[in-house]
Amino acid sequence: MSEETDPSREAAPSTLRRHEERLLGGPGTMTVAQFADAAEVPEHLVHSYWRALGFADVPAEAHPFTDADVAALRDLVDVVTDGGMSLTTAQDLVRALGHSMDRLVLWQVEALVQDATVRYSLDDVSARLVVLDRLVELSPLLRDQLDYAWRRQLVALLGRIDKDVARLGNEAPDPGQLPLERAVGFIDIVSYTTRAADLDRAALTSLVQDFETIARDVVAQHGGRVVKTIGDAVLFVADDLLTGVRTATGLVAAMGAGDLPVRGSVVWGRVLSRSGDIFGPVVNLASRLTDIAEPGTVLMDDVSAALLEGDLSAHGVVLDPMDVRAVPGLGEVHPVVVRRQD
């Protein structure tokens, strides 16, 4: 590609300044002390807020802060001062935003870099220059999509909360139990370490991207929700066991069709949801069952299998009990292979 047609040559030294103007209203002008004065809060609160967002401490003489930073912190402080939430809750919300936005902008930029690399036949550095330059124009679209997706996800979550409350009825929850009943599933790539060691960058990128894309599409298609992807594995939840089974077996089938040998598990139990993740013994059980599953199979424990057998709507689901297995940390486990006849 000649210099005349290389899009990376369009990147100007003022690109970062243009982003600051568009996103923050201009370059930073305030130190930590000035930020605290403008927001009418102690300096330690500014440090706490900045760290909660996921950023490193700022040297006292640096001037990174803008009026946008002051407005964001002041809005949060006003809610806490008015009694709308506790300071601890406000900090937790900020941590959630900081972590989620860090992951989101990284994901978006890497996707755009990959697009520029392929479309314009660029090396990685040149592709990043193209993306850096064009994000000024793309940022309004990305922000609008963020707002739309947030509203849609909130509506979906409110619907799940309503179902959970209706399921309980007038029954008082047991304070000693974890609050949510969910189907928990794991899927991981078989022999990922060995497979990845022999791949070049393009092939590894394709492998990871295919796994992530298929996992998220299939989980959503069957009514489950991805909790997180962990390199070569995906953790998902579903609101009922049959949906969890359909999701897990659907993932194994779809991955296999895409030449991605995987194995998995799905179990039913109670979990605690915190910081966008789930916790509890059932999560550990699902992970351990995945570790002992054969390629192309989905395992569940005998308790979950008994619940599935009692579900009249679970037609077409076949359960094959296995021999008892000793699993480190869990003792003896009675695994059951679950599959669908179709």
Score class of each variant (00 low, 15 high):
R22S: 07
T31C: 00
L16N: 05
A72Q: 14
A12Y: 00
L53P: 02
E4R: 13
R51L: 13
E21G: 02
A62R: 07
D69T: 11
H63F: 08
D57M: 05
T29V: 15
D75Y: 03
E43Q: 13
P42T: 00
A36D: 07
S8V: 05
R51D: 14
V70M: 09
A68L: 12
H63G: 03
V41M: 07
D6C: 11
L45I: 11
E10R: 12
L73W: 06
D57T: 13
G25N: 01
A56P: 00
V58P: 04
A39G: 01
R9V: 14
A39K: 02
R17M: 13
P42A: 01
E4F: 12
T15K: 01
P7A: 06
P42F: 01
A68M: 11
M1Y: 01
A12L: 12
L16Q: 11
W50E: 09
A60D: 15
A11K: 10
G25Q: 05
V70Q: 12
A11S: 08
R22A: 14
Y49T: 01
S48Y: 03
L53K: 02
D75L: 10
A12R: 14
R17V: 13
H19L: 15
R74Q: 12
W50R: 05
F55I: 01
P59K: 03
T15V: 15
A71I: 11
E40A: 15
V58T: 12
E21N: 07
W50N: 12
T15Q: 05
D37Q: 15
D69S: 10
A72N: 13
D69M: 05
T31L: 01
T29G: 01
P13M: 04
L16Y: 14
T5W: 06
H47W: 08
R51T: 14
V58K: 00
M30F: 05
